[in-house]
Amino acid sequence: MNDQQDAGAEPAEADEVSAGGSPAFGDSRGTAETAVRLRNLWVSYGKFDAVKGISLDIPKGEVFGFIGPNGAGKSSTFRVLATLQRKYRGTALVCGLDVLRQPGRVRDVMGFVPDFFGVYEDLTSLEYLHFFAAAYRVPTKQRKAVIDDVLTLTDMAHKAGSPVDSLSRGMKQRLAMARVLLHDPQVLLLDEPSSGLDPRARIEMRELLNALKEMGKTILISSHILSELGQLCTRIGIVELGQLVAEGSLNEIYRRLQVMRLIHIRVDNPCGELEQRVRGIPGVAALETQVDRWAISLHEDQTSLGDLHAGLVEAGARLTMFQPEAMDMETAFMKLTEGRTT
């Protein structure tokens, strides 16, 4: 059941959804600069609609974070883009290629890491990569060099001879990353790549993703670790109940939601009077006294961080620490979603 003809089957809902933040869409074909384009995407399993009219554009070279509660439709969207979902309605393009009509070409330009890492117990890491290099049709003569490169990039060279089954979860995830880099894809679809990893493995994964970002890869990543996405993504999309409820850069989303920035400060001279003066600084919405610091909630659209700093000094605070929280995505997430799951 395709499909393209049915793309406008649910126009009312589609319009409503795309109002979540995507620009107005006219042309359904991808442009040279667009890595991923979704138009009114619907994925249904029987009577249940997992994805309800998601539309978005992801330019090349962007790292797009896909956030949403479990069952929100993230993995279904990923499966469509990874050519693993035969039945859907709407349009899905990867690098201008239609996922349904040109799945072979899409597979050439896309690498997909699913949210689980099934292992071939019987292979070593090297055999595993050779297996997938052959499956990706990497020319035989180039295979060794390509595999050496991806092993180096993912810091897995020392584990080349180890059975896949014996690797730690973090290493398996890095091996999965090595696998999808074998055919040098332009677009990477990473479904929960940091899920279940320990802090060290998570940091290593983040470094690897940063390296790939610097290489100009377009990355579509879903994760539950919001702070991590905040550090990595250029744009994010928040999905709930199969609909895109917000989409844009972090700052755009904060502005739209009027989300407050949290700033931790420590002063040498804490007292009630100073606290009152700080509360009086324009833009300060709240001040919470914690064990060793104050946590200030700031309307950043009214007062910039620099102005706050100046205001604090002017109020007589002798600052020993001024630490704005990098992101407050949890707040944004909680504000945008209502915790409804299917």
């Binding site: 050519t83 799945p103 072979g104 050439d108 330009v109 880099l181 040098d184």
Partner: peptide
């Protein structure tokens, strides 16, 4: 396609593609 629940690759005159540019060089 039904058994694997995955769209079959289109017929391509260029056969199986692999981006032949050297990955290592670009990397």
């Amino acid at each position: 396609a039904h058994l694997l629940d995955r769209a079959e690759s289109e017929n391509r005159s260029d056969g199986a593609l692999y981006a032949t540019r050297k990955w290592a060089g670009e990397a």
